[in-house]
Design a protein around this nucleic acid. Structure first.
Length: 780
RNA sequence: UGCCCUAUAGCUCAAUUGGCAGAGCGUCUGACUCUGGAUCAGGAGGUUCCAGGUUCGACUCCUGGUAGGGCAACCA
């Protein structure tokens, strides 16, 4: 189970706890979760897992289960008979296993819960929380209203429990045709959240389900089946992507009504988009069905199966998941992030061999005419990879080199072969190009070179330096192979963003697959088996295709090319962003009228309040627009200091009490007045005042009682502060020096240290002044 | 035009909950080289979306705005 230690979430690594980990840590600490952490990965078996939809949730859930010693269920969310298939179940399972994760015994199907879900729906009906609606699909849509207009109750909303029960039972026994009735939750047709406007829970569908055949003529919808399946399985944390955020109230509504606590809770994180590809099952399915790719496992596909077929390792996919992490903001991931993870893993995994992709013949004119090749012992691994092993590589009079490694009219920065220049043959000798042979069309067909027998690699006499080293393969001993080079599937970074009248398919890259039939590889590779990986030196990583490769016809898929800095010299990188001058236009900040939208009556009250209490119009509007807050303020202000009272109510009390009526909290207006009085008199600091206030909300005690009880009186005595300041300074000599070297931002650190030393009781203003004084005087 | 979410280095994410704005990738420079790879060392890169406010102190709290995303399937 612990195959991926390095990429699981190490709980001791406090530096990077993502927000889900923090939630779980909290739940554990507060005892909200008893026993194991149980999470789940809930794919719908209607397509293959891809890097966007599959990888992140799989990694998040399984790694979380591992980290907390809990478990992760694999549950197929198969509640739509029309698109689902057992073949997809198998493929998804294979992909998850390949990634290195294991669900153990815990494989479930939502379709196994159909009986249970039906019972739960009946309970909802008994409790008056659901009803059978007989409106048509279009009518339901109409009655629902729009995002700006509230909905209307269905005429069937008030059917009796008996009637609802009877109708629902008949739906179950198949007595109604498709679409004639649905079961809806009875929530609120005027909710600002469209999902809460009496969502449909069950629909009638006389369709055959891939696992339940014709057992059920009714099927639950996601919004009903998912939360309840979670609850049935005792899931503790149900993680899903951001678009389900608006479903959470419904999730809670259902689970609250049908299950006791502890119950599952839903949390959402963002999906991500990869550049130059599409990550939607619908679009991927289209590519497969229209044969624009060779299948779900086409190496150009962003599916797990595609990556696997291309030669990408599971480890690199997991490493990639780890580096992109998890957050709540929508992101477009730079493809170089994935590529780095792939190369980084393959670097230590793939032995080096030489292969010439596009051959150019070279004759070494001073090499012996006939006889045995010279066999050179070449290591499989570079010096910085701690692995042993080598193979013999034959050098003969005729060899092939890469066409790209020769330039008849080289540019200055080109340091490979050109007429009259020298280059080293990797593991071999230095050669010089003496002549270029063209055919009648002017195409270069052959190079005549001489080699220097004294320059053999590794002999010590080869101290002569040449600018470049190139790979090569013996013409007579090399073996021909079929190579497939892959490029991005789309020509634009975001194919989902289409112009008028075009579809994502119009942006397909016609050159995303390049087949090379004349490549030639060194003979040691003849024993390669399907699934083997190699680095073709200076080219990239290659994978023996597990499907199409045979001993007679070896096929190599390019997993990923090596990083190529020469390419950048040839094609200068795109201009820096600043050069494009696309700074966002300066924002205009239109002055906002705080009285806007208020009735003239209230506006007058706000204006009067602003004048009487000397408050800004903004602050007045904030408090004066609401009757409860207005009254509360007026009473609290009777103790004097209306400005401070207003600040306190706006910045501290309102956020703390939320929608609650302030008069109904356990803190009275007079108590606020006396707290503000203490604050103004500097008996307590504002920091302490916040603590006191929290305690007051909790206990309803008077502020001075709280202060006495908790011993919170402020320390303002300059001598006492100075002493504390000295202690802090001597405890952090390094920071003192950094401060004096100009890092004045550290003042916050010093004050913070002192504040925590005194549990917040020191007067921060006095402390800050003392720090500033001491830090500047000592340095002079 | 309603409700909800998001905004920190070129990219992906952190910042001990109000107290030093950091990491990885990318980029640049140098070293080492028999891979224009890898590795190692170093550098640059910031108006924390904007404008106000609260605070001794704001990426963090408050108000308003801007930009991006989600929500009106009997899909998931």
């Amino acid at each position: 189970m612990n195959r991926n230690d390095e990429y699981s979430n190490d709980p001791s690594d406090t530096s990077s706890r993502h927000f889900i980990q923090q939630i779980i840590d909290d739940d554990l600490k507060e005892g909200r979760v008893q026993g194991e952490i149980v999470v789940r990965f809930p794919p719908e078996p209607n397509g293959y897992l891809h890097i966007g939809h599959g990888v992140r949730p799989i990694w998040v859930n399984f790694a979380l289960a591992e980290e907390y010693g809990g478990r992760c269920h694999l549950r197929f969310d198969d509640t739509n008979p029309e698109t689902e298939d057992m073949a997809y179940v198998k493929a998804i399972e294979e992909d998850i296993r390949w990634l290195g994760y294991d669900w153990g015994e815990h494989r479930y199907f939502a379709s196994d819960y159909f009986e249970k879900l039906y019972e739960l729906a009946l309970r909802l009906i008994e409790d008056g929380n659901a009803y059978v609606d007989s409106l048509s699909e279009d009518e339901i849509r109409e009655y629902r209203g729009t995002v700006t207009e509230t909905g209307t109750n269905s005429p069937h909303r008030d059917r009796s429990t008996d009637e609802n029960r009877a109708l629902f039972r008949k739906m179950r026994t198949g007595e109604f045709p498709d679409g004639s009735h649905v079961l809806r939750a009875k929530i609120d047709m005027s909710s600002p959240n469209m999902l809460m406007r009496d969502p449909v829970l069950y629909r009638i569908k006389h369709a055959s389900h891939y696992r339940r055949a014709n057992d059920f003529p009714i099927y639950p919808l996601y919004d009903f089946a998912h939360p309840l399946s979670d609850a049935i399985e005792n899931i503790t944390h149900s993680l899903c992507s951001l678009e389900f955020e608006v479903h959470r109230p419904l999730y809670d509504w259902l689970v609250d009504r049908l299950f006791d606590s502890p119950r599952p809770h839903q949390y959402e994180f963002a999906r991500f988009n990869l550049e130059y590809t599409v990550l939607s099952k619908r679009k991927l399915l289209q590519l497969v069905e229209e044969e624009l790719v060779s299948g779900w496992d086409d190496p150009r596909m962003p599916t797990l199966a595609g990556f696997r077929r291309r030669g990408v390792t599971a480890e690199s996919i997991r490493a990639f998941s780890h580096t992109i992490g998890i957050a709540k903001s929508d992101t477009r991931v730079d493809i170089s992030m994935l590529e780095y993870a792939i190369r980084d893993d393959l670097n230590t995994r793939a032995p080096r061999v030489m292969c010439v992709l596009r051959p150019l013949k070279v004759v070494l004119s001073n090499f012996p005419e006939a006889g045995e090749p010279e066999w050179i012992d070449a290591p499989y691994w570079p010096h910085d990879i701690p692995k042993e092993g080598s193979r013999p590589v034959p050098l003969t009079r005729e060899i092939y080199i890469e066409r790209d490694d020769f330039m008849e009219y080289p540019s200055k920065k080109f340091h490979r072969l050109a007429p009259g220049t020298e280059v080293r043959l990797r593991y071999g000798y230095i050669i010089r190009c003496d002549a270029v042979i063209h055919d009648e069309d002017g195409e270069i067909v052959e190079l005549s070179c001489t080699y220097d027998p004294d320059t053999k690699s590794g002999t010590g006499s080869s101290s002569r330096r040449v600018k470049g080293t190139i790979h090569w393969v013996s013409a007579s001993e090399g073996i021909p192979i079929h190579v497939r080079l892959y490029d991005r599937l789309f020509t634009v970074a975001n194919p989902d963003d289409t112009e008028e009248g075009k579809t994502f398919k119009d942006y397909l890259n016609p050159n995303s697959l390049q087949e090379l039939h004349s490549s030639i590889v060194e003979p040691s590779v003849s024993s390669a088996k399907p699934g083997d990986r190699f680095q073709f030196e200076r080219q990239g990583y290659f994978y023996v295709d597990p499907v199409d490769s045979t001993p007679d016809h070896p096929v190599f898929n390019q997993t990923i090319p090596l990083k190529d800095t020469w390419k950048k010299v040839k094609e200068p990188s795109r201009p820096a962003k600043s050069a494009l001058n696309n700074d966002p236009p300066a924002q205009e900040n239109v002055a906002h009228d705080p009285l806007e939208g208020l009735s003239s009556e209230v506006a007058a009250r706000v204006k009067e309040m602003s004048e009487r209490y000397q408050l800004s119009m903004n602050d007045s509007a904030l408090l004066g627009a609401d009757d409860a807050w207005f009254d509360y303020f007026v009473r609290a202000a009777e103790g004097g200091h209306p400005g401070a009272v207003a600040n306190w109510l706006i910045h501290e009390m309102r956020p703390a009490v939320g929608d609650e009526n302030p008069a109904e909290t356990s803190v009275s207006a007079t108590q606020v007045a006396s707290l503000i009085d203490l604050l103004v008199k500097k008996t307590i600091s504002s920091r302490i005042a916040k603590n006191v206030f929290t305690e007051m909300l909790d206990s309803g005690l008077d502020p001075d009682v709280v202060i006495e009880k908790m011993d919170l009186a402020q320390i303002s005595d300059p001598d006492a502060i100075d002493a504390l300041v000295d202690t802090v300074l001597t405890e952090h000599p390094d920071r003192v020096e950094a401060y004096r070297n100009g890092k004045t931002g550290l003042i916050g650190f010093f004050v913070g240290q002192l504040m925590s030393k005194t549990n917040g009781k020191a007067n921060p203003q006095v402390a800050r002044e003392s720090f500033e004084r001491k830090l500047s005087e000592d340095s002079s």
